[in-house]
Amino acid sequence: MLSKLLKYDFKSLAKSLVPFYGLVILLGLLVRISGIVKEHFPVTSFINGMMLMFFIMLIVAILFYTFFVSIRRFYRNVLKDEGYLTNTLPVKRSNIILSQTITSFVFSVISTMVMIVALLVAFYTKGSLGEIFGFINKLFIAMEIEPWVGYLYTIMTMITGYMSYVLIFYLALILGHQRYSNKIVYSIVYGLVIYGVLQVLSLICVGLTIVIDPNLIDVMSNAYATFKDMASLFISSGILSILIPIGCYFLSCKFINTKLNLE
């Protein structure tokens, strides 16, 4: 049944996001075209400027919009009127949340790819990719990090960071929804509480890391420390960043079984 849930969650998010993707790529095209036109007819450079402005706005907005659409779908489909249908389907509640989580993740990846494609459409010139990667590689090496480790860690933290927010929102909405009035207000309150708890957890994590690797104290006060010296911290915060979304997922599953309160 999970596959069926995925099918419909996917369809629903696609309906909202695909038009937006089309718009972003279209604008990327327009930026490129107006850029070419500008070369030949300098007087039209203001059009290029406008296209550029809208394009940048959409690029910045794309992940925020994706996030917003994911959360909105979850809220409507699970906690509002549609919840009467969703929560009485012959599926495990944990699968309902899992399906929403997977779909949110998949679309965050798709949105990122669309963003990259649109940027390429708008700005790509021969060899520019090589330049960009070359630059990033040099940066990593300067920080004494193997480039592949750097890429991997960055991508991992981006993913876990995004999914943490998604799952924190899910959890806060579920908790806030058990109230009879001011559900949204309570959701925000719960969200802040969760965030506070996570901050405390992060501190504890740092503390534990210091206990394991006492050199860290010196390293952190040393302005010339390299990333290699702080490897233990990166590893522990990396582990925490994976555990947080997983923890929120399990708590969401637990609370949706016991605290569901459809109006």
């Binding site: 629903s12 009127d81 549609e82 919840g83 009467y84 009485t88 389907l89 012959p90 495990k92």
Partner: peptide, 20 residues
Amino acid sequence: GVNSKKIISYLPERTYLNMD
């Protein structure tokens, strides 16, 4: 649970379909 939902057909008081 999952098994009871397979055999219960429920019509709630409100509109619970996805309007889109």
